[in-house]
Amino acid sequence: MSAVFLVGVDSSAASSRAAVFVTERARAERAAVVVAHVVPWSPFGATTTEENERRHPTREAELARGKRDIAAPAAEAIRVVGVDVQAVVRHGHPAQTLCDLAEEHEVTQLVVGRTGETRLRAALFGSVPSSLVQISPVPVTVVP
């Protein structure tokens, strides 16, 4: 089975570094890449009546924006160096969703950028890389 890397991207500089890292590794190992952007969302989140009414078009817009502004450009930058790549955008809990995608795409390694949370913020809200390390089904690389 050939290697498949999954890289989580958002609009941060750290995630761009993760994408660069993945590009180099994938080229060296002739691996395929899945570029994933997760729109934070919880099925148990509090919403208002107006938000519910407009949820469907809002969700479509979020997916389209995630694809157009984040996932697609990142994927394009990887594709130009000749690596087989696909872009995915999905709603959900970021770490959990990356793990789900890793299983769905039979990924061999997960790569994310370091979010650089302060200790306090990480203690209060957690961080995607630290939860990933705990729950990922495959090895995780955190790019500083």
């Binding site: 729109v39 969302w41 099925p43 148990f44 989140g45 519910n52 949820r55 969700r59 979020e62 709603h91």
Partner: peptide
């Protein structure tokens, strides 16, 4: 349907 209004939210 991930991302749509869930039963819980309604």
């Amino acid at each position: 349907h991930i991302g749509e209004v869930t039963h819980f939210q309604a």
